[in-house]
Design a protein around this nucleic acid. Structure first.
Lengths: 209, 209
DNA sequence: CTAGTTAATGACTGGTCAGTCATTAAGTTT
DNA sequence: AAACTTAATGACTGACCAGTCATTAACTAG
């Protein structure tokens, strides 16, 4: 097989292609942005011809859609399940979720995806709306319920959950943007985990009755 | 003059052109993004021919640079002056700065500019670096000093100013992104001022000794 | 081994658009 | 009012690139 892959010009591996193409697309898109990435370059990086991409994806935009879908994965569902079976104080669960986000920022290309969504949502509202519907509009109400519960039980002082959620998420967004936008330009590396801990500390103390 | 402007084909107004072109560019860029905006459309919106733009700006990219420069304006200098002449507690000044930001978000196209910087910084690192050097790297140390001062004087409990600044700015970034990305897609309108007040409340209480 | 099926290729096409420049109009000076 | 300077125009060019498709290579069943 190693022999073959060195000598054969054309390998037929229809099962492996789509994920290889997506990986190449993610790498290239997060490097050069969506519109300045050429399909031929995605193909080259995936070790495939340009035409082959069109066997698996109808057009360039479909690559972007698939990437966003893939990045979201089952994280949100997992979070929803955790909220459902919660008993007792909410603060530890909030902390756990922030740390889940940190892990994704550190181990996946989530920051690049977030940057792509921000960048491309005007030219491709479909992408933005997909993210809005499937991530924002699911994650935010989830956290709102959590914070509302904390307020109701007296664990937190009175605060508008709608706005408070955005206070919670703001620094997470900043982490992602810093990673994908400013670090590549030579800005100091941001310790995302440390930022998250500092933020949790201020945020949870700030909500104490 | 009104007579003329209705009848004349070619008006010669070299002083007014640049700002008119920039206004048109900002409107179009924030509507369609930078790369999918055509120079001819910028020209049309500015009431000018495509060629005329090139009399005032060397290329398309120069428009973007000029826009970013214009958006920053003297805000940062103003902020620096306020910090220098500060005596007494720092919390009110922090609140004032957050409210200054809110005002800019509500009355200017700052959110669009921020979105453009995020979107285009990969394709045009020059833009990103300009923003990094002239906004981020000026505003953040300023606020760091402020927070450091608060910690030193005992107004705040111990906290890493570097990280704390990012906690402070996160929700501001989120406001800008929400405005420029999600609201155009039909998401609920965000009350930026209310978010800022809620955030200040949590943040400042969270830093109390 | 042969015929049929499916994966993969890459030259080509059609459309787009940034930037140029020869030409024309407006305004100014003498 | 003629000669000159400068603002403005828009047709044109060259480069770029997404998506197509005729062709070729790799497999598979009989």
């Amino acid at each position: 097989m190693t022999d073959q892959s060195l000598t054969r010009k054309r390998q037929r591996r229809p099962d492996a292609r789509p994920s290889e193409i997506l990986a190449a697309a993610l790498a290239l898109f997060s490097e050069k942005g969506f519109s300045s990435s050429r399909m031929e370059d995605v193909a080259a990086r995936a070790g495939v011809s340009k035409g082959a991409i069109y066997l698996y994806f109808p057009d360039k935009f479909a690559l972007l859609k698939a990437l966003v879908q893939q990045a979201i994965g089952g994280q949100i569902d997992l979070a929803a399940r955790l909220v459902d079976r919660l008993e007792g104080p909410v603060a530890p669960l909030i902390a756990q979720m922030v740390r889940m986000f940190v892990l994704r920022v550190e181990t996946t290309d989530l920051p690049s995806i977030i940057k792509l969504v921000i960048s491309e949502s005007r030219a491709h509202p479909e992408i933005g709306r997909f993210y809005l519907d499937n991530v924002i509009m699911v994650a935010m109400p989830l956290l709102e319920r959590l914070i509302g519960k904390g307020v109701a039980s007296g664990e937190f002082r009175a605060a508008d959950p709608r706005l408070t959620v955005k206070c919670l998420l703001g620094p997470m967004l900043l982490s992602a943007v810093w990673r994908s936008v400013f670090e590549p330009l030579g800005a100091e590396q941001l310790d995302v985990a440390a930022l998250a801990e500092q933020h949790l500390d201020i945020f949870l103390k700030g909500l104490r009755p």
